[in-house]
Design a binder for these strands. Structure first.
Lengths: 106, 106
DNA sequence: TATACGTGAAACCATTCGGTTTCTCATTTT
DNA sequence: AAAATGAGAAACCGAATGGTTTCACGTATA
C-alpha cells in the first residue's frame, strides 16, 4: 500500500485529526472523543498518517501522544507552487488591464 | 457521491491531468495520450474534476476542451493557511533563538 | 447519405477504504 | 497478584474507487 500525503488528507476525518493535534499532541482516546466513531477507527487513521510521516508517536507509559509533523504539510504547499505562479500571472494581467483602463480614462 | 477537492487531488493521475491542462485547455483524447490508460478512464477522472468544479468543459464542434479552474485550487491554499500560521510562528521562534545566540556571542 | 471520429454512459470487475467487533498485549492501579 | 486501562492487530463487511469493454450519440467528412 503506497501512501502519499494527498491520499492522507483526502479523508475529512483525517483532516480534522490533523487540525486537532496541530496545537497540541493527543492520545488516540482523546482524539476519538472528538468524533462520532470508535477509537479503533481513529487508530487506523493514525496509522495512515504515520505511514506518510504526517504525525509522530511519542510513548509515555501506556499512553501514546501523537504529534503533528507540520513540515510535512509543506509538500502540499510545494505542489501548489506551480499553480500559484499561474494565478499570480493572471492577477498581474488583470492588474495591467485595470491600469490600462485607468490610463485611457485620463 | 459527495465530491470534494481534497478527494479530487488524491489520485495521482488526476493531479497529472490538472498540471497538464493548467497551461492550456485540452481534449480528452489529447489528455489520454499522455497516460498509459484508456480515454474512457481519463473521461471518468474528468467527470470527477468537473463535479467539484476544478475544470470546465468548453464545447467546440464535436470536441470538448477542458480548462482548469485554477481559482478552485485556492481552497487548498486556504486550508493550509491555518498551518502556515503555525509554521511561521515556529520559524520566528527559531529566528529569535538565532538572534539571541548571535547577541550572546558579541 | 454513409462512414469515421470524438465523446460520454453503462455494465462489470478486482481492489481499496472506512468502519465495527473481537482479541491480545503492555502498563497502571487496587 | 488481580483487575482495569490504553492501545494496536486481525477478521470481517458494505461501499467506493479506478479500471476495462461495450454501447449510444452527435458532429465532421467522404
Amino acid at each position: 500500500m503506497r501512501r502519499d500525503i494527498f491520499q492522507a488528507i483526502a479523508d475529512p476525518t483525517r483532516r480534522a485529526i490533523i487540525a486537532l493535534i496541530a496545537l497540541q499532541a493527543m492520545t488516540p482516546n482523546a482524539i476519538a472523543e472528538h468524533f462520532d466513531t470508535t477509537r479503533q477507527a481513529v487508530s487506523k487513521h493514525l496509522r495512515i498518517l504515520i505511514e506518510c510521516e504526517l504525525i509522530k508517536p511519542e510513548h509515555k507509559g501506556r499512553e501514546i501522544y501523537y504529534q503533528l509533523e507540520i513540515d510535512k504539510l509543506k509538500e502540499i504547499d510545494n505542489w501548489l507552487e506551480q499553480f500559484r505562479k499561474i494565478w499570480e500571472t493572471r492577477f498581474n494581467q488583470l492588474d495591467n488591464l485595470l491600469a490600462t483602463m485607468k490610463k485611457q480614462r485620463k
